[in-house]
Design a protein around this nucleic acid. Structure first.
Lengths: 135, 135
DNA sequence: ATGGAAGTTAAAGTTAACTTTAAGTCAAGG
DNA sequence: CCTTGACTTAAAGTTAACTTTAACTTCCAT
C-alpha cells in the first residue's frame, strides 16, 4: 500500500502519515524506489492512533502507549501507570459527556429565557461547581 | 468579584478570562477604576464554557451556543441544528470512550505480545475499520 | 516514451487557545 | 506616603498537530 492509499483509507492526508513517522509513532516502512510501501496492518495502527487521538490522547502519549505495547512492558511500568490514569480520565469524560448530552437535550426542549435560569432549573449548578478541579 | 478570583475559582488564569471576553464569549463586566468586576453568576458561565470546551466544542461553537441561548432562538434555527448535531457527536464520543476503556482494561490484563494480536483477539478490528468516516 | 498524478525532502506556514511580556495603573496595608 | 501585588493594554510568543510550499523524482496509463 502506498502512502496515498493508507492516508485515504484512514481519512487523513499523506502529510499526516509522514508526520506520524517523523514523531516515531509510525514505523518507517520499507521503500520501493524511494517511496514508502505499507503492509496491510499499518492501517489498523493508524486508525488506532486516530482513535486514541480523538479520545484526547496527545501524540506524545500515544507514542508512549504504542511503544509500551511493542516492548510488552512489565507490570508497574510507566505504561501501566499511564493506562490506569487514562482509564480514570476516560471514565470522567464519559460522565461529562452524558451530562452534556442531557443538558443539550434539555436546552432543545425547554423554554428557558436564559442559560442561567436553565442551569438553575436543571440544578446543574452542582455539576458545574466542581468543574473547578479540572482533570 | 475581580478577575483574579473569577479565574482562580474556574481553575484558569486571568489572561484566559480576558481572552474569552475578547472573543465575545464573556460579556464585558462593569469596571471600577478601570478594573473588571464580575457578578457571581459569571463563574457559572465560565465553568460552562470550560465544560463545553472539555467536551470538544471549539470556542467559536461555544460562542454560537451561548449567543443562541441568550437570544432564545426559535425552532429550526442555526442553534438548534448545531445542538442536534452536537448531541450526535457526544453520543458517538460516549461509545468511543467506552470502547477505549475496555481496550485499555484488556491491555492491562492481557499478555498479548503485540498490539495487532491484541486487537485481533478482542475483535476490535471492526471497530477500527469504520473509524475511516470520522465525525 | 511521455505527461500527469502521486511520491520525496526540508522548511516554513497555519490554527486554536491561550500565555507571556512590556510598560504602565490601581488598591490596600503599614 | 510608599510599597507590593493585582490590575490594565497591545502585541508577540507558545504548543500541538498538521498542512503547504518548492523543488524535485518516480510511477503508470496511453
Amino acid at each position: 500500500m502506498k502512502i496515498g492509499e493508507l492516508a485515504g483509507r484512514a481519512g487523513l492526508k499523506p502529510s499526516a502519515i509522514r508526520y506520524y513517522e517523523k514523531l516515531g509513532i509510525l514505523h518507517p516502512p520499507h521503500r520501493v524506489g524511494g517511496q514508502r510501501r505499507y503492509p496491510g496492518d499499518a492501517l489498523n495502527r493508524v486508525l488506532l492512533i486516530r482513535f486514541a487521538g480523538d479520545m484526547g490522547f496527545t501524540l506524545a502519549e500515544i507514542k508512549l502507549f504504542l511503544g509500551g505495547l511493542r516492548d510488552n512492558a512489565p507490570v508497574g511500568s510507566r505504561w501501566r501507570k499511564l493506562a490506569v490514569r487514562k482509564i480514570g480520565q476516560v471514565d470522567q469524560s464519559i460522565k461529562r459527556a452524558r451530562r452534556l448530552k442531557s443538558l443539550l437535550e434539555h436546552l432543545l426542549r425547554c423554554q428557558c429565557p436564559s442559560l442561567q435560569i436553565c442551569v438553575q432549573r436543571l440544578s446543574l449548578s452542582p455539576i458545574l461547581k466542581n468543574m473547578g478541579e479540572r482533570i
